[in-house]
C-alpha cells in the first residue's frame, strides 16, 4: 500500500478545508482499504470523517420524510424501526449485501460511493478506462457478468450496490456539502453512465462530501408491497448477478403507482420508468408483470458473452413484482432478498 497522510477532522468545516486533489474520505473503509491494498486506489491523503458530529442520526422530518446521516452504519439502518416499517425494501437490500461484519462497518455514504467489482478495475496491472483513463478495457474481452444497459465502448462495468437500488426506486435524494456550499442530488442522477469518461463515476464535484440521504414522504406509501430480490452465485455474501427493487401502491385492487429499479445491470441503479408507466392503473397479474419486465429490459444489449444476463434480469424483475404484489412479509425473511425463501408467497409462484 502506498503511504498516505492521515487526518481526523473534528468538524465538517475542517474536513472540507482539508480536502485537496489526491485526498479521499474514509468512512467504514470496507471498500477503500481493500482497494488501497490492491493498489487500485492510491490516495495521498486519507481524511477520516467518522468523528464528524451530526452525521449518524436517523430522523423523521416534519413532512414525513426520513433523513439518514451519511455515517449511519448499514446494520444500524437495516435494524432501525422506522426503516423496517416505512421502507422495508431498503432494509431487505441492506441485509442482502455483504456480511454481518462488513455491514457493521460500512456507512450510508460509503455505500453510495462504492466502486465497481469489475476484476479489471480492481487489478492495477489491467487496462481500465475507469481507473486509468485512456488505457483501454481488458474486461471487453471477458465481459461475462458485465453491464447490459447504459454501457459504452469505454467501459462495461456495473455498480454493485444493493442499497442504491431501492433508493433509486423511491426517489431518494443525496445531501451534499462542498466548498461551494450545500446541494442535493437525486440518487437516480448521482451515479453517471460511462460514456467516454468512465472515470467520472458520480455527480459529486471535487471536495464535496455526502452528509445524508433523504427518503421523501411518498416513499413510505409503498411499504405494504415492496420487495428487493437478488440473484447471485451463492445464497449469501455475494454480489448480485441481477437484482430488482419493486414497490407497488395498491388501491382497490389496482396498482395506483409502481416503482421499479434494477441492480447490477448498469453503472448506476437502473430506474425502469417505462415499466412503471405500464403498470400504473392496471390490476396486478403475472402477465402484466411479464410485460413490465419486457419493457424494463427493452433497451438492453449484451456487452460480451452475457446475453444470458438480459433474460435473467427480465425474470428477476417479473418475480420481484410478483413478490411485491403478494405483500411485504411481516418479518424479514431468514434469507433476505433470496429467491430461495420459504415463505408462502414465494412458493405460490415458484
Amino acid at each position: 500500500m502506498k503511504r498516505f497522510d492521515f487526518i481526523q477532522p473534528a468538524t465538517i468545516e475542517d474536513a472540507l478545508a482539508a480536502w485537496e486533489p489526491g485526498a479521499v474520505w474514509l468512512g467504514g473503509g470496507t471498500n477503500i482499504v481493500d482497494l488501497m491494498k490492491t493498489g487500485a486506489m492510491q490516495p495521498d491523503k486519507v481524511i477520516d470523517i467518522t468523528r464528524l458530529p451530526g452525521l449518524s442520526e436517523i430522523e423523521t422530518l416534519p413532512d414525513g420524510a426520513i433523513r439518514i446521516g451519511s455515517l449511519v452504519r448499514n446494520s444500524d439502518l437495516a435494524d432501525h424501526p422506522q426503516i423496517a416499517r416505512h421502507a422495508p425494501m431498503v432494509a431487505e437490500a441492506l441485509l442482502a449485501g455483504a456480511s454481518g461484519q462488513l455491514r457493521n462497518a460500512a456507512t450510508v455514504g460509503g455505500n453510495l460511493m462504492q466502486r465497481t467489482r469489475c476484476a479489471y478495475f480492481q487489478d492495477p496491472t489491467a487496462a481500465c478506462n475507469r481507473r486509468a483513463p485512456g488505457t483501454g478495457c481488458d474486461a471487453a474481452q471477458a465481459g461475462d457478468g458485465m453491464a447490459i444497459l447504459g454501457w459504452s465502448e469505454a467501459c462495461i462495468a456495473t455498480n454493485p450496490s444493493d442499497f442504491c437500488v431501492p433508493l433509486a426506486a423511491l426517489d431518494a435524494v443525496v445531501e451534499v456539502q462542498g466548498p461551494e456550499g450545500a446541494r442535493e442530488i437525486p440518487v437516480a442522477a448521482f451515479h453517471l453512465l460511462p460514456g467516454d469518461t468512465p472515470d467520472r463515476e458520480t455527480d459529486l464535484a471535487p471536495g464535496e462530501l455526502i452528509i445524508g440521504v433523504r427518503l421523501p414522504a411518498e416513499a413510505t406509501g409503498f411499504a405494504a408491497n415492496a420487495r428487493y430480490l437478488k440473484v447471485r452465485d451463492r445464497t449469501s455474501y455475494a454480489f448480485a448477478m441481477t437484482s430488482a427493487a419493486a414497490a407497488l401502491r395498491l388501491e382497490d385492487g389496482r396498482i395506483a403507482e409502481a416503482r421499479l429499479a434494477l441492480g447490477a445491470v448498469a453503472a448506476k441503479p437502473w430506474r425502469a420508468t417505462e415499466a412503471e408507466a405500464l403498470l400504473a392503473g392496471q390490476a396486478p397479474d403475472d402477465a402484466l408483470f411479464d410485460r413490465a419486465a419486457e419493457a424494463a429490459l427493452a433497451g438492453a444489449a449484451p456487452s460480451g458473452g452475457n446475453a444470458w444476463k438480459i433474460d435473467l434480469a427480465r425474470r428477476t424483475t417479473a418475480r420481484s413484482l410478483r413478490m411485491a404484489a403478494a405483500g411485504t412479509p411481516a418479518e424479514m425473511p431468514a434469507l433476505p432478498a433470496s429467491p430461495f425463501g420459504h415463505s408462502a408467497e414465494d412458493h405460490a409462484h415458484a
Partner: peptide
C-alpha cells in the same frame, strides 16, 4: 480476522488502527 470493536463484530483487516 473478526474481532469486536465496541461490542460489534468487524473485519480487523479493513480497519485502519489510527481510526
Amino acid at each position: 480476522c473478526t474481532v469486536l470493536v465496541n461490542g460489534r463484530r468487524v473485519n480487523s483487516c479493513l480497519t485502519l488502527a489510527l481510526t
